[in-house]
Simulated assay, not measured.
Amino acid sequence: MIKLNIKDEASRLKAVVLGSANSNGPTPTLDEAYDPKSKEHIQAGTYPKQADMVKEIEAVAKVFEKYDVKVYRPKEIEDYNQIFTRDIAFVIEDKFIKANILPDRDQEIDAIKHVIDQIPSENIVKFPEDAHVEGGDVMPWNDYIFVGTYRGEDYANYITARTNMKAVTCLQELFPDKKVKSFNLKKSNTEAKDNALHLDCCFQPLGKGKAIIHKEGFLEEEEYQWLVDFFGKENCFHITKEEMYHMNSNVFSISPEVVISEKNFTRLNTWLREQGFTVEEVPYAEIAKQEGLLRCSTLPLVRS
């Protein structure tokens, strides 16, 4: 049995599901792409090659091995993108919450059945069909749950809007003792630099009371300001539009002191080290072309 325990984003990681790129399939057509960044690379002929993505994800597996983290992997589905495990489910406290994800991606959850079978059934939660939610938008942070959403009337027009207010309500009902705080995010189906696909594309809390944030990812200035005030301006690392585009906020904490980051994030990695973090650098620039990075490809199950 797996004894789930996730209270925040940075406590010492004990067990995680790490995505797989072993049988990613051919480059998708433009019609098959779910986000503007993938479309950009399909058009430019720079969409990532499977061999490169396998190398990148295995570099992360090695870091987990170094820190003695138990790693589960999805069962391989032929010609199917299984990199972004964070989208398909997430854990808060001892609850495993299945995401209501884009219908094209239903098979991904079946590929981690061997993991789900080790979780007591009363701890597995599925929200109603009309409560859309993906793990990239949900961040447990002690007494809080931070949730990225899109509140616009035109929600249905955005394939990039993945979590709705119905899901925010469901989270509040499931965790009545926590404060569920939602943030209205900027969405674009066509312009990657104007699209915060998930909350972790424009914000992430770290250990030591620090956070990474991108102001323009938020539609309401006061919601962005709330986060800055919550962490303290001096503790927030502000990333530029270009850095957000390269997914600088999508790093992953193994512990309050250790962060896995992309090796090209020079400015961020320098700042992290100045703040006393150990930075485990990995190559992840190819996977980043699909508008996802390190947090997106991990589904933490147990933190101590």
Rank of each mutant, 00 (worst) to 15 (best):
T298S: 13
I116Y: 01
D200E: 14
T270Q: 15
I92S: 04
Q118M: 08
K210C: 08
E108K: 02
V17P: 01
L268G: 09
K66Q: 12
V133T: 12
Q290M: 15
Q107H: 09
K208Q: 15
I97F: 05
K187Q: 14
I116H: 02
D117P: 00
A51Q: 10
G136C: 09
E291A: 07
E234K: 15
L185W: 05
K166Q: 14
E191L: 03
V133W: 01
D104P: 07
Q118L: 09
Y34I: 08
R295Q: 11
N157C: 00
Y67F: 10
K193Q: 11
N142M: 10
A59P: 04
A161H: 10
M139W: 05
M247C: 12
K263M: 14
N269A: 06
G207W: 02
C236I: 12
R295F: 13
E242P: 00
V63P: 05
Y284F: 14
D31P: 04
D52N: 15
E220R: 15
D177L: 05
D8F: 00
G152M: 09
G276N: 13
R295H: 13
E173S: 15
D52Q: 15
T278M: 11
F265G: 03
N81I: 09
D177M: 05
I92G: 03
D87F: 06
M53D: 03
K241I: 14
A211H: 05
T149I: 14
K166S: 13
N264I: 13
R12E: 14
V282M: 03
Y224L: 11
L13P: 03
L299R: 01
R73M: 08
E32Y: 07
V228Q: 11
P48F: 06
S297Y: 02
I6L: 09
G207K: 02
N248F: 15
V282E: 00
G19H: 06
E56P: 04
K3S: 09
D94Q: 08
P26S: 13
S20Q: 11
H246S: 11
